[in-house]
Design a protein around this nucleic acid. Structure first.
Lengths: 194, 194
DNA sequence: TAATTGACCACTTTGTTCATTTGGTCAATA
DNA sequence: TATTGACCAAATGAACAAAGTGGTCAATTA
C-alpha cells in the first residue's frame, strides 16, 4: 500500500481537465501538473492519452449503470423508476459535466477519439434502457413497443433537453427535465390521458 | 417596365451558384457573370453579399413554411397534422439543393454566415410549429405545455426518428414514423392511456 | 532495484508573412 | 439615369517558422 494512490490521482486530474477543457485541449503535461506527478508516471499506468480517456469514460459508464441499477425498485411503477433513475443521473455533476463537454467537443470539432467514446456511451446507455424497457413490457407496465428504438428515442430526448436546448435558452432544472420527460414520453400530450 | 428584370436575374444566378458551390465559394464576380450583369449592378439592388444571401434564404424559408402550411388539414387530428408538417419540412430539407449545400458547408467549414442562416431556418421551423402548438393548446386538443420547448423537442424527436436512427439501423417507413411519433409523443407509453 | 521523473525528440499545431483574390466603390459610359 | 468594369482596400490562404504536444528513456530517487 502506497502513501498516495498515484493512479487515482492521475484519473482524478484527467477527469477534472477533460470535464473542464475537453479531450483535445487537455495536455498530458497539464494532467501531470494537476495530479502532482511526473509526466512519465502517467505512462506507467496508461499506454497513452486515449487509453487514459477510455478508462475514465468506461468508469463513467459503469458508475452510471451501477447507480441507475441500484435506484430501480421493482415494487415501484415504470414511470416512477424512470423518474428516479433520470434524477439520479442528473445529480452526478462531474459525470454530467464531462458528458456535456464531450457532446460539445464532438459537435464543434469532431475529435475522432471523442466521437468514438460518445458512441460507446450511447450504445451502453441505450442497451441498458432497452433491457429495462423489455422488462417493463413483459410485466405490462407499459405498452408494446420496439425496446431498442424506444430506448434510442428516450436517450435522444434526454440529450436534447440537457444539451441542445441550453445552446439558445436558459438551462432547465433537473426537476424540470424529469417532469418534461414524464409529460412527453410517458403520459403523452393527448388530452385524454393523465 | 424593363426588358429584363435584372434583380431577378441576379437572384437566380446567385441561387444557382450558392446551390452549386456554397456561400464561400461563390464570388460576386461569378454571380455577375452568370447573371450577365456588371458587378456594380448587383450593388444597386443589394448592400452586400450577405444581404443577397439573406434574401435568398428568406425566400427559401417562406417556401418551406408555405409548403408546410398547405399540408395542414383542419379535418385531421393534431398529431396527424404535426406529423405531416414535420415530414414535409424534413423532405424539403433533404431534397432542396441549396439546403443540402448549406448543411454540408456548415458541417465542413462552419462559415459563420451559413451557420447564422441555418439557425434562422431552424428558428423559423420551431417558431412555426410552436404557433400551431399554441393553437392546439387553446383549442384544448392537447395538454398545457411550453409551446416553444415542445416544438423544439418535437422537431428533435422527429429528426432522431427520420435521420439519426438510419445511421445504424434499417430506415423506418413513413407510416411507422407516424405511428411511433404518435405513440411516444402524443399518447405516451403509459398503460393507462390510449 | 523498482518506481518516479522531467529533459528530450519527432511530429503536430499554431502563428506569421506576403502574394493573390475578392468584396465593394465610383468615374466613365451608353 | 442606369449600367458598367477598372480599381483599391481588405480578406484569404500558401508557405514557412515558431511553439506546443504526446510519448520515451537515461538519470534519479527512495
Amino acid at each position: 500500500m502506497t502513501v498516495v494512490d498515484r493512479k487515482q490521482l492521475i484519473i482524478d486530474a484527467a477527469t477534472k481537465s477533460f470535464s473542464l477543457f475537453g479531450y483535445k485541449a487537455t495536455t498530458m503535461d497539464q494532467v501531470s501538473k494537476i495530479a502532482n506527478v511526473g509526466k512519465g508516471t502517467i505512462y506507467t499506468f496508461f499506454v497513452n492519452k486515449e487509453e487514459l480517456f477510455k478508462e475514465i469514460v468506461g468508469k463513467l459508464i459503469e458508475d452510471m449503470i451501477k447507480k441507475a441499477n441500484s435506484t430501480i425498485d421493482p415494487e415501484k411503477s415504470f414511470s416512477e423508476n424512470l423518474h428516479y433513475v433520470l434524477y439520479e443521473i442528473l445529480q452526478f455533476r462531474r459525470q454530467h459535466q464531462l458528458m456535456i463537454k464531450l457532446i460539445q467537443e464532438e459537435q464543434e470539432m469532431k475529435t475522432p477519439a471523442v466521437s468514438d467514446m460518445l458512441q460507446e456511451i450511447e450504445d451502453a446507455i441505450v442497451s441498458f434502457i432497452s433491457e429495462n424497457i423489455s422488462i417493463a413490457i413483459k410485466k405490462q407496465y407499459i405498452k408494446q413497443c420496439n425496446p431498442e428504438l424506444t430506448a434510442f428515442v428516450a436517450f435522444r430526448l434526454y440529450i436534447s433537453l440537457i444539451s441542445d436546448w441550453e445552446k439558445h435558452h436558459q438551462p432547465l432544472e433537473k426537476e424540470e427535465i424529469a417532469d418534461l420527460f414524464e409529460l412527453y414520453f410517458i403520459k403523452g400530450l393527448s388530452k385524454e390521458n393523465g
